[in-house]
């Protein structure tokens, strides 16, 4: 599925991932392909994007995560994104 991560300053990540683990406001959520349409607030924590054997980790805080209808596009719009 296609994943984008954007912060107010720039688009941080734009690519493909097999799995996303994101820190929602009330705990971690895992997103796999074909997830139902979903919109949740983000808390503060580590965002993990897994693609095959490679993993990208980002520190995010605030904003929201959206799984667009169809479940093959995930948008993470965070108030703060730091490389970790």
């Amino acid at each position: 599925m296609h994943v984008t991560v954007v912060s107010p300053v720039q688009a941080v990540f734009d690519g493909v991932a097999d799995a996303v683990v994101a820190p929602a406001y009330d705990g971690l959520v895992g997103i796999l392909p074909r997830h139902a349409a979903f919109l949740t607030l983000l808390g503060t924590g580590k965002l993990t994007l897994r693609q095959g054997a490679t993993t990208t980790r980002l520190q995010v805080s605030g904003g929201f995560l959206q799984v667009v209808q169809g479940g093959d596009t995930v948008r993470i719009v965070a108030d703060r994104v730091d490389q970790s």
């Binding site: 139902a36 949740t40 607030l41 605030g62």
Partner: peptide, 21 residues
């Protein structure tokens, strides 16, 4: 459109957080 989404915690709470952003 929003109705088809699973919204957590709720549309109001999300809006409340996102408006200041």
């Amino acid at each position: 459109q929003a109705v088809n989404y699973i919204l957590k915690p709720s549309a109001e709470a999300i809006l409340e957080q996102l408006l200041p952003l």
